[in-house]
Design a protein around this nucleic acid. Structure first.
Lengths: 217, 217
DNA sequence: AATGATGGTTGACGCCGTCAACAAAAGAGA
DNA sequence: TCTCTTTTGTTGACGGCGTCAACCATCATT
């Protein structure tokens, strides 16, 4: 009753995997129910036993992408306990660079009716919360600075998401940039995020934290 | 030979307009050639006399969107001669907010094969150049600081594009934010962009420019 | 008047998502 | 074991899509 148990081959799972493969290779617009069925050697209606519609399959895949994304962010962050957002930023950009089409699916594709897919919403919000908590940690505990932390989190998210999107944007490949720009892009971005956050936390009478890592670099 | 002259009704133009309407109201995925034809009361193949394929119609629309976007940015900028990026930022965000689906079409939709649509590329690059020139103007003339200006422009673009996208992102409507966050979002963002740019131009031994506007306004 | 280009129509083809009806298979209760 | 029901998968349709092919109307040019 809880979950299907021992099927020789779990068709639902196979559908998700096949669909994810298609999306990762050809993008969301190339995904079709019939194609999934064909790849699995089943009839074109078989997947509908497990997913009410194409949107439901899509929602399931998006949910998993958000879960993977959150896990990816969490892993990187915990590798350095101080939770410096530099690690977060690198992890964020790395994910977007490694899985561009999944990233686009999460953040650049209209969602199916969200009311019908509460799990999707939950996982997506959770991914943002990682970013938000990283900012809240910079201020003290307690809700006194929640608004400030939210603003910071949205700024960091904007900038990271913006960079991730831009690097994949079609127009990017046609811009003629100074040659040293691209290699420096990431470090420059991190530096600017850093500067903006320090400047925004200074006017507040909060004690100035030593946020930079002490050693070189 | 140059351009069609006196047609009672220019079908090509009508197709573009009808298609833009559909996109502006329902988004790119709702656009179909047959629908356009139906709306214009013509046969389903008539549009193909003017556009080789759906992608070609799409490319033409994207080109016009970039042209409108660039004009929009230029207009706002020229209203205040000093070209402060605050105006640019407002104009950028305003366009994205007013024409969300067109914005998504330009920056969030995979392009048709760019080699086949050079005009599209040209107009898109031109839109970026407005942003870039605004940053170059902050430094002196000459190519000495082109790399710096490019980095700044990409940072500003990242942040603006990120914010514009995020505000339209599906997940945004499900985040529970402190109530004062949303109203302050834009001003906070502009402040942080400002701070980041000032900090990044300071370490260079260039004279510190009085970048803020002097008086009221 | 004959010609050929231009712009439009009709009809097909093979995709697509999805509804409806059916068949096989797998448990559950007797 | 033999039914009966639920689950799972199949087949076949329907209408919509992009686009190819063939045909037709209009009109400027020779």
């Amino acid at each position: 009753m809880a979950t299907g148990r021992k099927k020789s081959f779990d068709l639902k799972e196979a559908c998700v995997q096949a669909a994810r493969d298609v999306i990762a290779e050809q993008g969301i617009e190339a995904l079709s129910m019939r194609d999934v069925a064909r790849k699995l050697g089943i009839s074109h209606q078989a997947p509908y036993r497990h997913f009410e519609s194409r949107d439901h399959l899509l929602a399931e895949i998006m949910r998993r992408c958000f879960a993977d994304f959150a896990e990816h962010l969490d892993r990187r962050k915990s590798s350095d306990e101080n939770g410096d957002h530099e690690d977060m930023g690198s992890a964020y950009l790395a994910y977007a660079a490694q899985k561009p089409l999944e990233y686009r699916l999460m953040f650049g594709t209209p969602w199916p009716e969200p009311a019908q897919h509460p799990e999707l919403v939950k996982y997506a919000v959770h991914a943002f919360d990682i970013l938000r908590n990283s900012q809240r940690a910079r201020y003290g505990d307690g809700p006194a600075h929640y608004a400030k932390a939210d603003l910071d989190a949205l700024f960091v998210w904007s900038t990271l998401h913006g960079m991730a999107s831009i690097l994949q944007a079609n127009v990017m490949q046609h811009l003629v940039l100074a040659p040293e720009v691209l290699p420096r892009l990431k470090a420059d971005l991190m530096g600017k995020i850093d500067a903006a956050l320090e400047a925004s936390s200074l006017p507040a009478p909060k004690a100035k934290k030593a946020r930079r890592k002490p050693a070189k670099r």
